[in-house]
Simulated assay, not measured.
Amino acid sequence: HCSAKLTPIILLLLDITPMLPVLEGVVMELQDCALPLLKEIIPTDKEEVAFKDLDAAILVGSMPRKEGMERKDLLKANVAIFKNQGAALDKYAKKTVKVLVVGNPANTNCLVAAKSAPSIPKENFSCLTRLDHNRARSQVAMRCGIPATQVKNVIIWGNHSSTQYPDVHHCKVNMSGSELTCFDAIKDDDWLKGDFITTVQQRGAAVIKARKLSSAMSAAKAICDHMRDIWSGTHEGEFTSMGVYSTGNSYGVPEDLIYSFPVQIQNKTWKIVDSLAINDFSKSKMDATAAELVEERDTAVAFLGV
Rank of each mutant, 00 (worst) to 15 (best):
M19F: 03
A205P: 01
I223N: 09
Q139V: 09
K76S: 01
H133I: 03
A148N: 08
V306Y: 11
D189L: 12
E255K: 15
S3R: 11
R130A: 03
M217D: 02
L54G: 07
A220W: 06
V102L: 06
W270V: 04
A210E: 14
A141T: 01
I58K: 11
A206D: 03
L13H: 08
I197R: 12
Y165H: 09
V244R: 12
V244P: 11
A185Y: 11
Q150M: 13
C127G: 00
E292R: 12
T198Y: 13
C2F: 15
M217C: 06
E292C: 09
A113W: 01
E179Q: 08
N107Q: 09
N174D: 05
I156H: 13
S161F: 03
V27F: 00
F183N: 07
L128I: 00
N78E: 06
A34G: 09
K94A: 04
N84S: 12
Q85P: 01
A148H: 07
L180A: 11
T240Y: 09
K46M: 10
T7K: 02
K72R: 09
R65C: 13
L257P: 00
A222N: 03
D45S: 15
L30N: 09
K285Y: 06
D45H: 10
W270Q: 15
L192K: 08
P166R: 04
E238T: 11
R137P: 03
D298Y: 01
P8V: 13
I272K: 11
D229Y: 15
H235A: 06
A4Y: 01
L59C: 14
I146A: 15
A290W: 00
T96V: 06
L180Q: 14
K94P: 00
S126T: 14
A148E: 14
S232W: 10
M19E: 12
E48Q: 06
M175L: 15
M19Q: 09
S119N: 04
A56Y: 13
E295Q: 10
C171K: 11
L11R: 04
V102Q: 10
I9K: 01
D73A: 12
A216F: 13
E40W: 02
K271D: 07
E70G: 08
D195P: 02
D184V: 09
I258K: 05
L100Q: 14
A148W: 10
M19L: 08
A205M: 09
H170K: 02
Y251V: 10
H160E: 00
T198Q: 12
Q31V: 10
A219E: 15
Y259R: 13
P254I: 04
V301Q: 01
P121D: 05
P254H: 07
Y165Q: 05
R71K: 14
S116N: 04
I186V: 15
I258W: 05
K95N: 05
Q201S: 04
I120R: 10
E292D: 14
F125N: 07
P18V: 12
T129Y: 06
L89W: 07
S116Y: 05
A136L: 06
E179T: 15
A56G: 05
I146L: 15
D189G: 07
L20A: 06
I16W: 08
L12E: 14
Y259C: 13
A56M: 10
M19K: 07
I120H: 11
H1N: 13
L13N: 09
R137Y: 08
Q150F: 12
H170N: 01
A302F: 03
K39V: 12
T240N: 06
G68K: 01
L304T: 04
K76F: 00
T108A: 03
P166G: 04
A80S: 14
V26F: 04
D167N: 02
D55R: 08
L37E: 05
